[in-house]
Amino acid sequence: MTNDAQGTPPAQDRPGYELPLLLFAGFRSIIDQLHAELARQGHPEGRPAHGFAMQAIGRDGATASELGRRLGVSKQAAGKTADRLEVLGYAVRADDPADARRKVIRLTPRGLDVLAKSAAVFDELRAQWAAALGPERLRDLEDDLRVMVPPSGFRLDVAGWFGP
Rank of each mutant, 00 (worst) to 15 (best):
L71P: 04
L71D: 07
L71C: 13
G72H: 07
G72Y: 09
G72V: 03
V73W: 01
V73K: 02
S74Y: 05
S74E: 06
K75C: 08
K75R: 14
Q76S: 12
A77M: 10
A77R: 14
G79V: 03
G79I: 04
G79K: 00
K80D: 14
K80F: 15
K80P: 00
A82S: 13
A82C: 11
A82N: 13
A82E: 06
R84S: 03
R84G: 10
L85Y: 11
E86R: 12
V87C: 00
V87A: 11
V87E: 15
G89L: 04
R93C: 05
R93K: 14
A94T: 02
D96F: 02
D96L: 04
P97T: 02
P97C: 10
P97L: 10
A98I: 03
A98C: 00
A100N: 10
R101Y: 06
R101L: 09
R101M: 01
R101G: 08
R101S: 14
R102Q: 14
R102D: 13
R102H: 15
K103L: 14
K103S: 08
I105N: 03
R106K: 12
R106M: 11
R106V: 10
L107V: 11
L107T: 09
L107F: 10
T108C: 03
T108P: 02
P109Y: 00
P109Q: 05
R110H: 03
R110Y: 03
R110C: 03
G111E: 07
G111L: 03
L112Q: 06
L112P: 06
L112V: 10
L112S: 05
L112G: 07
D113C: 05
D113R: 10
V114W: 00
V114D: 01
L115Q: 12
L115W: 01
L115C: 05
L115D: 08
A116E: 08
A116L: 08
A116T: 04
K117W: 01
K117R: 13
S118N: 06
S118I: 00
S118F: 07
A120W: 04
A120M: 14
A120R: 15
V121C: 05
V121M: 12
F122L: 15
F122H: 13
D123G: 13
E124C: 04
L125R: 04
L125F: 00
L125E: 00
R126T: 10
R126M: 09
R126G: 13
A127C: 09
Q128S: 11
W129N: 00
W129S: 01
A130R: 14
A131G: 01
A132D: 06
L133E: 09
L133A: 07
L133V: 04
G134Q: 09
P135E: 15
P135K: 01
P135S: 15
E136T: 12
E136H: 13
R137V: 12
R137F: 09
R139K: 13
R139W: 08
D140E: 14
L141T: 09
L141D: 03
L141K: 04
E142N: 06
E142H: 12
E142F: 02
D143R: 12
D144T: 14
D144L: 08
R146V: 03
M148H: 12
M148T: 07
V149R: 08
V149Y: 09
P150I: 08
P151N: 10
G153Q: 09
G153T: 06
F154K: 15
F154T: 15
F154V: 15
R155A: 14
D157G: 06
D157V: 00
D157P: 00
D157N: 10
V158T: 06
V158E: 12
A159Q: 06
